[in-house]
Write a protein that binds this DNA or RNA. Sequence first.
DNA 1: TTGGGGTACTAAACCGCTCTAGTTGCCGGA
DNA 2: TCCGGCAACTAGAGCGGTTTAGTACCCCAA
Lengths: 343, 343
Amino acid sequence: MSRPTIADIAKRVGVSKGAVSFALNGRPGVSEATRARILQVAKEMNWRPHSAARALGGARAEAVGLVIARPASTLGVEPFFAHLLSGLQAGLSAQSVALHLLVVEDAEAEIEVYRGWASEHRVDGFVMVDLKVRDPRIEALEEVGVPTVVLGGPGRHGSLSSVWADDREAMLSVVDYLAALGHRRVAHVAGLPAFRHTQRRMRALRDSARRLGLVDAVSLPTDFSDAEGAAATRALLSRARRPTAIVYDSDVMALAGLGVAAEMRVRVPDEVSIVAFDDSVLTRIAHPSITALSRDTFALGRQVAEVLLEVIADPARHLDVKTATPRLVVRESTAAPGLGRDD
Amino acid sequence: MSRPTIADIAKRVGVSKGAVSFALNGRPGVSEATRARILQVAKEMNWRPHSAARALGGARAEAVGLVIARPASTLGVEPFFAHLLSGLQAGLSAQSVALHLLVVEDAEAEIEVYRGWASEHRVDGFVMVDLKVRDPRIEALEEVGVPTVVLGGPGRHGSLSSVWADDREAMLSVVDYLAALGHRRVAHVAGLPAFRHTQRRMRALRDSARRLGLVDAVSLPTDFSDAEGAAATRALLSRARRPTAIVYDSDVMALAGLGVAAEMRVRVPDEVSIVAFDDSVLTRIAHPSITALSRDTFALGRQVAEVLLEVIADPARHLDVKTATPRLVVRESTAAPGLGRDD
DNA sequence: TTGGGGTACTAAACCGCTCTAGTTGCCGGA
DNA sequence: TCCGGCAACTAGAGCGGTTTAGTACCCCAA
């Protein structure tokens, strides 16, 4: 026989549908004895709520949405993304909330999906990632009126809540560290300039260069791919006055850069130091292992989930959470310029 | 004002709810003129179907489920997984079907989620991954009665459809290649022995060793982590008669193995050749780059999605799709066993 | 003229659950 | 004895669609 409904339970126990509903939802209106009997029978019949029926009455969908506008084929490349997803899952599954995931072509399609899922009550909230410099999604999501947490900032996310890491401070700490080692020519292989965090990192490098008197502090934008990361590295290392340290905006690019250095017979860290934003297995198992800004993306994802659940519980709230600033994990890929020849 | 319903449209156009439903779903029962008028008004009012209401009536959920029983924190490590997810997305989003994703602790919880989502009509089908040797999930899913595609095989997935790659054939091709280069001592750093595909690879290595007269053809099981991959490599390279070639069950472990070799001053590929199952950026950007079995995981994911959509469309069907056998991409990490030749 | 059959449409049941507005029965107090 | 009040429970109206049964009307053949 097919799934039992509360009507079946009601008939069997000999009470009304309403009584069963009250009992199952733990609300007053039934005696303890009756409640126990109802729960017992519900269990025996292996009853489960029909989420659609609940949703019709205006209840929660018990799911949140994550829509990503990237070519699906590049998603897999980013350990960052996978970790974030894991963290989100961890935070959500604690409250048995599922994640509705969709990859679309562009921001326009993304906004369409927001509208659709919201009005179909498919989800209770959204997580928005890849905050752009002037981002049309912000306005769209505000209009849609569904609780949302933006991953990125600070600022520029309108009335939406956000969770952000201080990219500026992180970059400053990297440059300070390199400067303290004695580096004067620090280059930066950046990510997509359309991203807000890329801009903040580039600006931080410029500011620090001025403050510390560094020269040739240049940022080369890329698309985050290993190919462009390698190309940028090749360009930098081919310069007459090549940088003594390179900061990469992702672990994949740093690893690609390391490969290029080896191929060009530029020794790491003796002749060039390498630092990666974003830590992962990649930086640990590379040889030499790569000094990286470690930011526990898993925890970040979980935090995003928690904030979102809070905002869903009380839509009037507006949270703006700053996460721990990435911590620099020093490994074998950095050293004072021109020194060290321990190999 | 809140979302318009078909009743609102009906009132505005001056017809009944039923007529509106017929018009919006493109079924007979209304004249072309009326249909056009209804569609026009629906568009003006920016109407969207309420998925919960549809689901109540027994319609599709337009979503499929993927439940993974792994500690969420290890998910991100596997490029394989991320690629698979991307491919799934690509296949599903072509028909605007969303992916309901959940990470749970163990197989038991996984089965609970299958039961739950199925009876709540949250999804139209499931994708099952990580096929184990004697897998209780198979029976559970058959009982649940929701269209499912198992990633893995061949065989041992009951009445469920499946998509599988020939791991045996793949391993044979690797060993043949190594034997042809002159290798006689081939080791295998395997994955979790509970996985069916791990078993098949181990058996294939044993069979091939017998056929080709290889010695010391040993498989060391691991948990797929870079740590255990490194440890296994260290153990193998410390042997008195160490292997001249090592096959790794994942790209991450191969990269970790490469690191260990460098650290132990065992030259690759001069003293030991390295081959990875599963290709990704990692194997390409490593230095030296790693010879790998490339299997286009993205395409695999898309194929799974397509098969699932087919089975959902016609639940009576049973598909069993064998994907292209992984192709060996030779890079810098393999060569004839030159130095340290001591047979 | 009748009647059969097709088309275009309406009314209402139905899906499974929630929630409000009763209704019943019992108790205690005046 | 009557009545108010409360706890326990019932009846039934939604929620937003789909779908079935039924109706009104028209056309055409007998």
